[in-house]
Design a protein around this nucleic acid. Structure first.
Length: 476
RNA sequence: CGGGGCGUAGCGCAGCUCGGUUAGCGCGCAUGCUUCGGGAGCAUGAGGUCCCCGGUUCAAAUCCGGGCGCCCCGACCA
């Protein structure tokens, strides 16, 4: 039934790219490592943007736009930042046919150019906080790329805030992490675990990085969003100070936070199946498609008339399309919309017309149901809600089934071989042990829980004391 | 950067080993008719720098040399 899509059990990577191709979400571009986001993929991004942007505004943020070119000298001002990003930057050396006096970095992230501006905008505590977000593209010259998950250029949002106190910055960082968690769970129907990154994994230039981690269907972890407490690092690098109420000059406290088009990859790998894309109703570009079935022009006219009558009640309640194309047959359409992940398909033919019913098919379960044409609108709305919930429940159930607790390194290594998934383990808190773990098993410490359950134990590798467990997994 | 695979019609491929008519096949595309409840059938038709450069030869998609590009897998990263 799913011609052209490799089964997940055969080859997970190929399945992933097949789903994207079958749903016409993206295409490879003439430029290595870059992708073209096609209308179907972009529509999902627009839905994500709409949901997130609303939440950003509700928490007091405003949008702005900063340039994509950053003077080299700016990039070099924060030591850890430049060290972290320099290897993966694209640099413009020529413009207008002439060599530039100073090379321009194509932004891999915008902290530096934004803080160069904040320096001018901030003098007094009265100027704080600044709560700016921008929707933009960024470029990171990755060695290996995968559609949506890691491309040389990608789209994202980056919030950059400035605060008078460390406490306020920390509260902001945590608040935005919570926004991401809510978005992932409520819109994407993707359960996530919030936490803190280890020193080793934190953002270049941050004091502390928070993240949300999700489990993909192959048991691997995917970092779905990050929120950084930047402390005073950028304020010091760019000499951004303000006068307190008491008249004292202090460096400003900063945060930054972002999610990217990678979320689309996360969405695919959380819900989709061997028949193609599955999209939760809240992010589906098209929520319901009605496929009319007819023989001959008379039936066609009758069916379409009834379909339009029914659909008149749907406006403003959910998005829909009546697929009245005459050049494709119903079976072909069923398949196409299935691959595209449309949550609900309705079928209506002559028999249904005679019986005053329609056939409804759920994308998530494949269940067919014959519905009266009375109260159809309410039934569709309720089913969309049910699909949203079912997708979340399934994803959560999958994660729980694939989350393990282990105490010894031998057991960990053995189980990781056979069951990829999340592992809660004891760790002694050192970077050396973390690096050894990664070198020996390819798994990484994904996060330290926000509010860890105190559980004194011994590091599974070194046997040194550990106050609580951390989350370890192979990751994208 | 290492390992593997591959460049021939829009897409997927055969042909290459062993050089030889006008380079094929499937899907898709165009037109027409019949169809239409899970990827329709028939007929007709359009569509090619055989990745590039050089060499060998009467003759190269095919042999030789060099180059470029893409995909997959690993080391780094959202």
């Amino acid at each position: 039934m799913a011609k052209g899509i490799t089964k997940r059990s055969e080859d997970y990577s190929r399945w992933y790219t097949d789903v994207i191709a079958a749903a016409k979400m993206a295409d490879y571009s003439p430029v290595r490592g870059c992708m073209v986001i096609r209308p179907t993929g972009y529509a999902i991004w627009e839905k994500m943007q709409a949901g997130l942007d609303k939440m950003f505004k509700e928490t007091g943020h405003v949008n702005a736009y900063f340039p994509c070119f950053i003077p080299e000298s700016f990039m070099k001002k924060e030591a850890e930042h430049v060290e972290g990003f320099a290897p993966e930057c694209a640099i413009v050396t020529h413009g207008g046919g002439k060599k530039l006096d100073e090379p321009l970095y194509v932004r891999p992230t915008s902290e530096t150019i934004i803080w160069s501006m904040y320096k001018n905008w901030i003098q007094s505590h009265r100027d704080l906080p600044i709560l700016i977000n921008q929707w933009a593209n960024v470029v990171r010259w990755e060695m290996r790329t995968r559609l949506f998950l890691r491309t040389t250029e990608f789209l994202w949002q980056e919030g950059h805030t400035a605060h008078a106190t460390a406490e306020e910055a920390e509260a902001e960082t945590r608040q935005m992490l919570e926004v991401y968690r809510t978005f992932a769970e409520e819109y994407m129907a993707m359960p996530v675990i919030p936490g803190i990154k280890t020193e080793n994994e934190k953002f270049a230039g941050a004091e502390r990085t928070y993240c949300i981690e999700a489990m993909m269907q192959d048991g691997k972890a995917l970092q779905a969003g990050t929120s950084h407490n930047l402390g005073q690092n950028f304020a010091k690098a760019f000499d951004v100070t303000y006068q307190t109420e008491a008249g004292v000059r202090e460096h400003v406290w900063a945060t930054s936070w972002g999610v990217s088009t990678r979320l689309i990859g996360a969405l695919i790998m959380t819900h989709s199946d061997d028949n193609g894309l599955v999209v939760p109703p809240k992010l589906a570009p098209l929520q319901t498609v009605l496929v009319p079935i007819w023989r001959g022009d008379d039936e066609r006219a009758q069916i379409l008339e009834r379909a339009n009558q029914l659909a008149a009640d749907w406006k403003g309640k959910f998005s829909y399309k009546i697929d009245d194309r005459d050049n494709y047959r119903p079976g072909w359409k069923f398949n196409e919309w299935e691959k595209a992940g449309v949550p609900i398909r309705l079928e209506m033919g002559p028999k249904d017309l005679a019986n005053n019913v329609v056939v409804m098919v759920r994308r998530d379960t494949g269940e067919k149901e014959i519905l009266s044409q009375e109260n159809l609108t309410a039934k569709i709305s309720a089913t969309l809600d049910a699909i949203q919930k079912n997708l979340y429940d399934n994803a959560l159930d999958f994660r729980e089934k694939n989350t393990h607790t282990v105490d010894t390194y031998d057991e960990f290594k053995e189980r990781l071989e056979n069951e990829s998934g999340f592992y809660w383990v004891h760790w002694d808190g050192t970077t050396e042990t973390e690096q050894r773990l990664q070198a020996e098993t390819k798994a990484t410490i994904r996060l330290i829980p926000l509010a860890p359950e105190p559980e004194p134990g011994k590091c599974m590798i070194t046997g040194k004391p550990s106050p609580h467990r951390v989350l370890v997994a192979k990751a994208y």
